[in-house]
Nucleic acid binder design. Structure first.
Lengths: 415, 415
DNA sequence: TCTATTTTTTTCGAGCCTCGAAAAAATACT
DNA sequence: AGTATTTTTTCGAGGCTCGAAAAAAATAGA
């Protein structure tokens, strides 16, 4: 049951408000913050002076701003990059990357590695993740003290508490509690997130005008993933990261899916499915482990050139995605969609059949208003989402409570 | 963007907390409220004495409780039934009902009417609703002053702001802003809700142990509806009431649905679909307008007796519901399900195929833990949900802000 | 150059709110 | 009747936000 609001919560919440206003706006003045938060100028003044004293915010040099206006010039506030740092780790098929991001959101260091995730043992997989994090933390340029959070995104299903990977297509291993492992290893709070959810988080930061309260990010890749934001909140399942759009049923008893079941959307629209149909193999043919981006590009080129099995394969993919989206729209109503991933570059081949299918569904009522955007490069998006998630945690959970709340009641405000 | 918390919000929220604790617990003592809200005894004491003085809560006579314990006996607090009243109006196929409910949740008056909703004009439909409400409000036994809210539930799609019916199977009319109409007519705040959503709200109140944070209520009736609670919140679409489970696509291009499209779950599992399949009509046959409960019972009886087309019809219904639920579970993960409505009495015929279908889907991973409950009578549930929704509004929007906030700053607390 | 004007930011006192401790109240036990 | 126990109220302290006024810092104009 929800809990009453205590008096100290008030300050904490309003501090969080101010911090997130600065994170969103970049360099807002105190007056602007007062306007967006609807708090009084006095309150904003008090809170921001605390935050500056604690080294969380900094004032922008007056000389850097040209006012052009009469009156006392506004002083911009910005996040102090040195206030903290976070690590964003992204684990996907045969690929592991880590980035160190400062409190202002800038990447200050990164490292990438190719792995053979499909054949690695459980311990090897964990070992690689731990090792890549350790190497970053041991970087002499980095003040390890300030690393406040590690966020790890993985292609696959995670649990709803953001602690563990439950299942993933990139490895036969299951139930790896990456968050707990990293936390134990380094003593830094860690979370484990689903890659598509992080894409959605990133899209919201990148283009808040288009991706605000309700939108869908679909990853078109070897498999099909989805990140969903509803009413401004990231949607997750009751037990897991949820939103397994790729495993909604398109045709009961239909094509064989990588997950072992039949008729999933992914079994028609995943790269392996497009490849399988383009090669005119049986729907029962075992899904191949990987199709290279180059090969997919060749398929798409061929499909654009002649009306052969390649074009039909993309048509089937569009149909599956369309009926899947139609069913999804029946539940949540239509919302803007971002198509992300290499196959988003072939969206021209997918879109006609997709729209035709949607038009045959309940969601198709507003099919005119449904708009698609494409973004072929998922990796930067996932990393960005990870970073923002970790930074938001630092904002809300570490800096918003304030020194006194964090340290118990060791000392009052610095005089 | 979210707004900062002001000082007066604090009291409002904590008052709301206390009121809802009393509504949930029935007759909690101040000590119990302090425990569930995590507020201090002093705060609870102050707030509850205000609420009693304002006539929102009442103390229970000490003589009515047997303490058996040492120490000062607890004094139970309860909602004052006379603090307010609400109207719950339910409009379904050929049927209109209204109930007057006091602030403590007891039905104090009701009226029901048979109508021919399918053939009525727009004005007739509106007129009947207005008239039935007017008759209740003109009841001399009722203190009209105290009617604080009207909640109207309809079988069909409503908009996400709870103002209007957008589309309904019970009438050819569309876009009727019932909430605005009633509000204008009687000067009482009104809301328009989806019937299945109200079922879900009611289930949560009836059995909070089973239906707490995540669950699904499915209406098996002429059509198929769903109410969904996720993370303790009623799920709605981005534009409409959403959750149109019945119009998720079961088989692309499949059986003709009442909505005019093809392959919807409802086109296999709605009463008209079961009837159509049992009569061995074509899947393209126009859905009949209504099948009587008696006729459905006869079909079910026949299906139980011999393995003929009737049994096959129920099997197909189960399969459609199963694959639909499977797709839903792919998105939200499994959750307890309540099957509501007359056809829930035939769930024994539906369940085997349903479970078999779910097992073939991504949601089937935990298929053992998926449990179904049946409740054949939807009407009381819908009315109960309506009433609770209206009462919650009174709690949160009228009583929580308090007299001074409501009346501007006309007077301070009564001395 | 100096003064008036404008806008931003800080300061200060007032008014609430919650909290903890202690007191008061109301019952059962001995 | 007196004591122990539990619930509820009272009271002062400490925080927080707010509005008004003051201070600060620039531009515009004379």
């Amino acid at each position: 049951m929800s809990v009453g609001i205590r008096h100290d919560d008030l300050r904490r919440r309003n501090r969080a408000m101010v911090i997130s206003a600065v994170r969103r706006a970049g360099q807002p003045s105190r007056t602007e913050i007062a306007a967006t938060t609807a708090l009084s100028h006095s309150t904003i003044s008090a809170i921001s002076s605390d935050l500056i004293q604690e080294g969380i915010l900094t004032e922008i040099k007056a000389s850097e701003t040209v006012s052009m206006k009469r009156g006392r010039p506004q002083v911009g506030l910005s996040l102090n990059p040195e206030a903290a740092a976070v690590l964003a780790v992204v684990l996907s098929l045969n690929f592991l990357s880590v980035a160190v991001i400062d409190y202002a959101g800038q990447v200050v260091a990164e490292e990438q590695r190719r792995l053979d995730t499909l054949t690695m043992s459980r311990d090897e997989l964990i070992g690689e993740c731990v090792a890549i994090v350790r190497r970053r933390l041991e970087d002499p340029d980095l003040d390890v003290q300030s690393v406040a959070r590690i966020a790890l995104a993985i292609q696959g299903i995670t649990d709803s508490h953001a602690r563990a990977m439950l299942w993933s297509p990139i490895t036969p291993q299951t139930n790896i509690a990456f968050a707990d492992i990293l936390e134990r290893e380094f003593g830094i709070p860690a979370i484990m997130e689903n890659d598509c959810n992080m894409m959605a988080v990133a899209l919201r930061w990148r283009d808040p005008d288009r991706y605000r309260d309700d939108f869908i990010a679909i990853l078109l890749s070897h498999g099909i993933g989805m990140g969903l934001v509803l009413k401004g909140e990231l949607f997750t399942g009751t037990h897991s990261s949820g939103g397994e759009f790729g495993h909604m049923i398109h045709r009961p008893g239909g094509a064989l899916c990588r997950c072992g079941r039949r008729g999933c959307v992914e079994a028609y629209a995943g790269n392996y499915a497009i490849w399988r149909n383009a090669r005119q193999l049986s729907e029962n043919a075992e899904p191949v482990a990987d199709v290279s981006d180059a090969e997919m590009r060749a398929l798409a080129a061929q499909a654009r050139q002649t009306d052969g099995p390649e074009r039909e394969a993309y048509r089937k993919a569009g149909e599956a995605l369309g009926f899947g989206l139609g069913s999804l729209f029946a539940l949540i109503d239509p919302a803007p969609v971002a198509m992300v991933g290499a196959s988003a570059a072939a969206f021209d081949l997918i879109e006609p059949a997709l729209r035709e299918a949607i038009a045959q569904t309940a969601g198709g009522q507003h099919s005119g208003s449904i708009s698609f955007d494409t973004e072929p490069n998922e990796l930067p998006l996932i990393r960005e989402g990870c970073a923002m998630r970790a930074l938001s945690f630092v904002d809300q959970e570490i800096f918003a409570p304030g020194i006194q709340a964090r340290a118990g009641s060791v000392g009052k405000n610095v005089a």
